[in-house]
Design a binder for these strands. Sequence first.
DNA 1: CTTGTTTTGTATCGGTCAGTTCAAAATGTA
DNA 2: TACATTTTGAACTGACCGATACAAAACAAG
Lengths: 199, 199
Amino acid sequence: MARPRMFDEERALDAAVHVFWERGYEATSTQDLCDATGLGRSSIYNTFQSKHALFERALARYLDAMTVTQTAVLDDVERPAADRVRALLALVVEGEAECRKGSGRALGCLGVNTVVELAGRDPAAAALLERDTVRRLAVYRAVMEAGRRDGSITSSRDAEALARFLNATVAGLRVSSQGGAGRAELEAIAETAMDALTP
Amino acid sequence: MARPRMFDEERALDAAVHVFWERGYEATSTQDLCDATGLGRSSIYNTFQSKHALFERALARYLDAMTVTQTAVLDDVERPAADRVRALLALVVEGEAECRKGSGRALGCLGVNTVVELAGRDPAAAALLERDTVRRLAVYRAVMEAGRRDGSITSSRDAEALARFLNATVAGLRVSSQGGAGRAELEAIAETAMDALTP
DNA sequence: CTTGTTTTGTATCGGTCAGTTCAAAATGTA
DNA sequence: TACATTTTGAACTGACCGATACAAAACAAG
C-alpha cells in the first residue's frame, strides 16, 4: 500500500520523554527532539502534529508509567502499609540516586518539573497533571487507610491529609535531589517524613 | 557630567524578579523584561549586561529577601522553636494563598522553580542556589537545636536531618500549591509535617 | 554656551525558533 | 512492472530570539 515507517513510535516517544525530562519544555527545541529520537522533522510533525502535542503525549506516557510503578509498590498487600510507604520513598530516593550516578545530575520527576514550569500557563499540561494527581492521591489515601487498619500507621490525621503529605514529601525529595542533596540526605528526609505517619 | 538615569535600578530588578518568577527563565524574553521594567532594550543591556546576568541578579535578590524574611521568623527567641517552625510554614502557606488570590494562580518559589528549571545545566544559577541552601539549612538546623533545648521539638533525629526535612517540606508545599492545592490542603500538609518534629 | 559623558530610542544584526513545502524514496497491490 | 499511498530528507518560511550599533537627547562641568 504505502511506504512503512522506519521507526517505532513508542521508542520515539520514550526518547522524547527523556529529552523533555532533562531539559524541560521551553529549553527543548524541535531539533533536540529530532536528535534524540533519530527522526527527521517531517516524521516528527507527520506523527505528532506539533512540539506541544508531542509533549502532551510524552508527559501522559511518563505519568502513566510512574503511577503504575508507584501503585505496584503501594498495593503489595503482603506487607504492612507503612512498609509500603517506606518502599515508595525508597523507590524515589533510589531513582534519584540512580540517574545521578548515570548522567551525573539528578533529573527529578517530569511531573514535578512540569508542574513548576508549565502548570500555571498551559491548560493542557495542567489538566494532565491534575488528572494524575487525583489518581495518585487516591492510591496514597488507600494505603493510609490500610495502614490505619493494619495498625502500621498510627497518625490520627485523616487519610486525605496523610495522602497530601506523602505527595508533598515526594515532591520535596525530588526538588531536594535536584538541588544537590545526595542519597544520605534524601534518606534522612524520607525517614523523618515517616515519623509523621508512625509517631 | 552626564545624563542621569530615568529609572531606579532596584525597582527594575524587582520587576525582573516578578517576571522571571511568573514565567521562568527560558519562557521570559528580553521583550518581556522591557515591558515589565518599563526600560528600553539599551537601558537593560547597558545596566545588566545580558539576560542571564540580569537573571542572576534577580535570583540573588529574591533569595536574599526570602532568607531574610524566613530568618526573622525563625529567630524570634520569644517563642518556642516549634512555634517558630509552625510560623514559617504558615508564612509559606499564606504566601501561596496570597498570590493565588491576587493573580489567580500560585507562583511557588523562584528558588524552587529555578532549582527545577536550571540547576542541572546552569552552573551560575546552581551556585547561587547552593549558597542559599547552605545558608538556609544552617538557620533551620539552629531552630531545630533550639527546639530540642526548649523541649518543643522532641524528635530524636539529629538537627541536620530535621533541617533537611523542613527544607523538603517547604519545597513540597510550594510544588503542591502550584499543582493546584488550596489553602486547606496546604495547611493539612504543614500540620502533618509538624508531627514529625513533635510526635 | 560649549564640551564631555552617559542614557535612551530605534533600527538592525545574525541566528534559531516552530512549522511547512515538496519531490524523491519506499512499499503493497494489481 | 506500473500504480497508489505513505514516509522521508532537505530546503525553506516568517517570526522571534538575545544582543548590538549608533545617533539623538539629556545632563554636569568648565
